[in-house]
Design a protein around this nucleic acid. Structure first.
Length: 225
DNA sequence: CACCAGGCAAGTA
DNA sequence: TACTTGCATGGT
C-alpha cells in the first residue's frame, strides 16, 4: 500500500473522529460574506478573541458593509481594529481588499461565486496582505469554493500525528487533504472547523494530552509539537 | 516577567 | 530554496 494511501486513510479517520465529536460546526463564524473576509484578515497570527472585539467595533461603526469601509478614513478603521494587533498593516490590507472587491464584484459579493475560482484566487494572492491561508479562507468561506485552509492548528496536529515533516510547505499539506477528501466544500469546511476546535483544546497543544481529545484515538507520534 | 495567537512581506545567504 | 525579522494587542 502506498504512503499516500496510508495518509489519506488517516486523514479520513481524523475527519470522522472530529465530525463525530463536534457535529456540524457550520463555519465560518460571521454574518455575511464581507464579514468573513474581514475576519480572515484580522485573524492573521492573532487570537480569535481579539478579532471578535475588533469585529464588534467595526459593526458599531457600520463598517462591516463593503462600501462603508471603502469610504472610511484609515484612522477610523485603525481605531476599530486596534484590538486585533498589527492594526496599521491590517487597515491597509482591508483597504486593499475593499477596492479589489468593488472592482471585481461591485457591491454584490455573490458575483464572486460565478467567477473562475483559480483566477479569483490568484488575484487575491496578488494583493499585498493576502497570503495562501487568507486567500483560501476567503475562497472557501466567503465564496464556497473547494480550497482547504491550512492553518497553524492543521500543521501542528498533522505533525503531531506523523502526517507531515517540519519542512512541509502550505501546498504539500493542502494537496494531502485534497487527495484524501476530494474537492468538497462542505467536507473542507467541517474538517477545518473541527481541527480548529480540537486545536483550541489543550489536548492538542504542546505536551498536552487530556484523554478528551477526539484525536487521541489515532495515537500521538510526537507530543513535543 | 515571558510566551503565544486561526500570517504575511521583505530582506538576507 | 530556506531562514530571519517586523508588525502589536491582549490573554495566560
Amino acid at each position: 500500500m502506498s504512503k499516500n494511501t496510508v495518509k489519506s486513510r488517516k486523514i479520513r479517520k481524523m475527519f470522522r473522529l472530529l465530525d463525530k465529536r463536534y457535529g456540524d460546526l457550520k463555519w465560518w463564524p460571521a454574518r455575511s460574506r464581507f464579514e468573513v473576509i474581514v475576519g480572515a484578515i484580522l485573524t492573521q497570527n492573532t487570537a480569535w478573541k481579539n478579532v471578535e472585539k475588533a469585529i464588534s467595533e467595526l459593526r458599531k461603526e457600520k463598517l462591516l458593509v463593503l462600501e462603508n469601509m471603502n469610504n472610511a478614513k484609515s484612522s477610523v478603521i485603525c481605531r476599530a481594529v486596534r484590538s486585533s494587533g498589527y492594526y496599521r498593516q491590517k487597515t491597509e490590507k482591508l483597504r486593499n481588499v475593499c477596492s479589489f472587491l468593488l472592482a471585481e464584484c461591485g457591491k454584490d459579493l455573490r458575483r464572486g461565486k460565478s467567477m473562475d475560482a483559480d483566477i479569483l484566487r490568484e488575484k487575491l494572492l496578488a494583493l499585498k496582505g493576502i497570503g495562501p491561508e487568507t486567500a483560501d479562507s476567503i475562497m472557501l468561506y466567503a465564496f464556497e469554493k473547494p480550497f482547504f485552509v491550512v492553518d497553524a492548528y492543521t500543521t501542528r496536529i498533522f505533525a503531531r500525528h506523523g502526517l507531515i515533516e517540519k519542512k512541509a510547505s502550505y501546498y504539500d499539506v493542502q494537496k494531502m487533504v485534497h487527495l484524501a477528501l476530494g474537492r468538497d466544500v462542505s467536507a473542507f469546511n467541517q474538517f477545518h472547523a473541527g481541527l480548529v476546535e480540537a486545536g483550541k483544546c489543550f489536548c492538542s497543544k504542546k505536551g498536552g494530552k487530556c484523554g478528551e481529545c477526539p484525536l487521541n484515538a489515532l495515537g500521538v507520534l510526537d507530543s513535543s509539537l
